[in-house]
Write a protein that binds this DNA or RNA. Structure first.
Length: 277
DNA sequence: CGAGAGTCCTGAAGGC
DNA sequence: TGCCTTCAGGACTCTC
């Protein structure tokens, strides 16, 4: 489920239940995630108050402040491929793959479920969000730091395909498999083109397309926010939004040509061979 | 350094 | 019905 829009939707949905609230305890049922959940995490986060919930790429940063300075730190969470964070109550039955609960003093519980266990729950001690996983990340796509000039200068000499290039979190964060295909369609760029052979002008179009695609998806996620905390949670709003993703053989919405698919870096790509060069 | 493949894991879907 | 293979919205890590 999670690409950047879904992570941002999760952040917005969780914020009223989390920010300014006191954590009474953390229950870890399964440590074997993408990396082992630190044994100290539960103790570090318990008896703190969440001061802010921010996003960096697809990571969520939970700023936790304790009564004494030594207890300050950040929960660093990632949803991986199949993770969800939802509010539940103490009466909510445990489901398979419910790996971790954050129990608040107001009795709300944030529950992490992740069948594939590619997600992460880590802890950063101290008052700064310094972590190896965050160090080399590229700019946020929805900020002014990300533009066509950035893509152009970062891509010179690179032979990797432009689709794999924009999915590289060291180039720009948060562009996942669905929105990579969607943004390239919007920009009219063939996903197989070598990153280093694309002009500055076309990268300006691509940067704009990435921003527009992600912003539209966040808006759509926002509109489904009211559904977010339902028990079944995951209704995919983006199926209605995609123009090429998972539409192999269907007619292109612009020119009517048949949408094609191919494999790039063991991931599926979808594109219109007539609109994208 | 970059490119490409391998890796973690469960579950759903499709072929036979 | 069951068994097998393939694929899934991520991204780090290793090898060359």
């Amino acid at each position: 489920m999670p690409e950047l829009p879904e992570v941002e939707t999760t952040r917005r949905g969780l914020t009223p239940f989390v920010v300014g609230r006191a954590v009474s305890r953390v229950i870890v049922r399964e440590r074997r995630l993408r990396w082992p959940v630190p044994r100290t995490l539960a103790q570090s986060m318990a008896q703190t108050t969440v001061k802010s919930l921010t996003r960096r790429g697809k990571y969520l940063l939970w700023e936790c402040v304790g009564a004494s300075p030594g207890r300050t730190g950040f929960l660093l969470s990632h949803l991986g491929m199949s993770g969800t964070l939802q509010t539940v109550s103490a009466r909510t039955p445990l489901l398979k793959h419910d790996h971790l609960d954050i129990v608040f003093s107001d009795a709300n519980i944030i529950r992490f479920n992740d069948p594939r266990r590619f997600g992460a729950m880590l802890w950063i001690n101290g008052t700064e969000t310094k972590h190896p996983l965050l160090d080399a990340l590229g700019p946020e796509p929805l900020t002014d730091a990300f533009d066509g000039k950035h893509l152009y200068s970062a891509s010179r000499g690179r032979t990797v395909s432009v689709k794999e290039f924009i999915m590289n979190g060291h180039i720009v964060v948060g562009v996942g498999n669905i929105y990579a295909s969607e943004a390239l369609f919007r920009a009219g760029i063939n996903p197989q083109t070598a990153a280093g052979r694309i002009s500055h002008l076309r990268y300006q179009r691509l940067a704009d397309a990435i921003k527009a695609t992600l912003a539209a998806a966040i808006d759509a996620g926002g509109s489904s926010l009211k559904d977010y905390f339902r028990a079944d949670g995951t209704s995919g709003y983006f199926q209605n939004e995609t123009r090429v993703y998972d539409r192999e053989g269907q007619a292109c919405v612009v020119c009517g040509s048949s949408i094609k698919s191919l494999r790039q870096g063991q991931r599926s790509t979808f594109f219109c061979p007539r609109c994208q060069h």
